[in-house]
Amino acid sequence: MILNFSFKFIVGRKGFSFRFSLARTYRVVSSASVDVLWEKLINLGDVSWHPLLTSTNVPRGLIAKPGLIYNAVTRLMPIPIRVFVERVRPCELLSARVLAIPGVEKRVTYQVESTVCGTYVSYSVTLRGWLSPLIWWMIRSSSARVAAELASAAEQVSLQAQG
């Protein structure tokens, strides 16, 4: 787990202000193949494995593409949030921006890479804005489980395919 904080106190003509940013990366190793992990990740209609999301308005089977905007409902509060898919590199990287409330910007990045030890899954969260400390306090424990839950769901799919 990698954690970075940035806090800037700015004095200007209009008074005092501050900028807060937080970046955290979680990484787990999985026995599932890159292809199985990637298929589980880009199927935006099935977020049953995700500890922060309950559902999306994306039809099952629709895969992530750059420029796609969809709605998702969080487990913490039953309010819809908008998700904008920024970048997709097949079997490698998925980056999205979460547009929930003014005062906070959340960017998430998933990376999948195959190594000799297994397949690594990385989940990075970057929060910016004056509400970031409050939002981070609310999602911290669930964010820590995202990569592990994705790996677990992909491993179950792999076991079902073998059995």
Rank of each mutant, 00 (worst) to 15 (best):
N4M: 08
N4D: 08
F7R: 07
K8M: 08
F9Y: 12
I10S: 05
G12N: 15
K14H: 14
K14A: 14
S17V: 03
F18R: 10
S21K: 15
S21L: 04
L22K: 08
A23H: 10
A23L: 09
A23M: 12
A23F: 06
T25Q: 13
Y26P: 01
Y26H: 15
R27A: 13
R27N: 03
V28H: 05
V36I: 15
L37T: 00
E39D: 13
E39M: 05
K40M: 08
K40I: 10
G45E: 01
D46A: 04
H50M: 02
P51E: 03
P51V: 03
L52F: 11
L52V: 07
S55L: 09
P59A: 05
G61F: 09
K65I: 15
P66L: 03
L68S: 04
L68A: 13
I69F: 11
I69H: 08
Y70R: 09
A72T: 04
A72P: 01
A72Y: 07
T74I: 11
R75I: 13
I79M: 12
R82E: 14
V83I: 15
V83S: 10
V85I: 15
V88P: 02
R89I: 15
E92T: 09
L93Q: 07
S95I: 13
A96W: 09
A96R: 14
A96H: 11
V98N: 05
L99S: 04
I101Y: 11
I101V: 15
G103R: 03
V104I: 11
V116R: 11
G118N: 00
V125S: 12
L127A: 02
G129T: 05
L131W: 04
L131N: 04
L131Q: 04
L131R: 08
W136R: 07
I139N: 07
R140Y: 13
S141V: 11
R145G: 02
R145W: 08
E149G: 06
L150S: 01
A154M: 03
Q156K: 14
V157I: 14
S158M: 09
S158W: 05
L159A: 07
L159F: 08
G163C: 05
G163K: 11
